[in-house]
């Protein structure tokens, strides 16, 4: 960038380097939020933010190094981080609701009956056959 005008080239370099360092510090703070956050949603939000800052960093790099293919990487990274959020939320919601249901069911049947996975009929028949 700058095309030969001396002051401009230096200005571009200083600007890009400063922005890169800045964004790197912010990304480290995102990691802090991911470690601290008491809930799951905190962590997913932190990972999303980290991805966004990395996208901006790669976009700045395309201009700094004058390589055109890094812009493709930005698009791919945006897609993949979006997909990650979708799958994580879906799976975690399913796991949580399933555990809640199992806790409810086992809380109701505390008198010694079977919980959801056993089949009461089969066992008696087999006991008789063995004896």
């Amino acid at each position: 960038m700058g095309k030969g005008i001396e002051g401009l080239e230096q200005a571009y370099e200083i600007l890009f380097t400063a922005i890169l360092i800045f964004l790197a510090v912010l990304a480290l703070l995102c990691l802090l939020r991911a470690v601290i956050g008491p809930k799951t949603a905190d962590r997913i939000v932190a990972v999303n933010m980290l991805g966004t800052m990395v996208i901006v960093m790669i976009a700045v790099l395309t201009l700094m190094l004058q390589e055109d293919y890094l812009a493709d990487i930005c698009v791919i990274y945006a897609m993949i981080s979006f997909l990650a959020v979708i799958v994580l939320t879906k799976v975690y919601m399913g796991v949580y609701l399933e555990r809640k249901k199992i806790a409810e069911m086992s809380g109701e049947t505390k008198s010694g009956e079977y919980t959801a996975g056993d089949e009461p009929g089969k066992c008696d028949g087999n006991d008789k056959a063995e004896k």
Partner: peptide, 16 residues
């Protein structure tokens, strides 16, 4: 299908 752990997942989210 009974031991299916995908029953409790949210489905058909209109926004998505």
């Amino acid at each position: 299908n009974e031991a299916n752990d995908r029953i409790y997942e949210p489905k058909n989210d209109v926004i998505l």
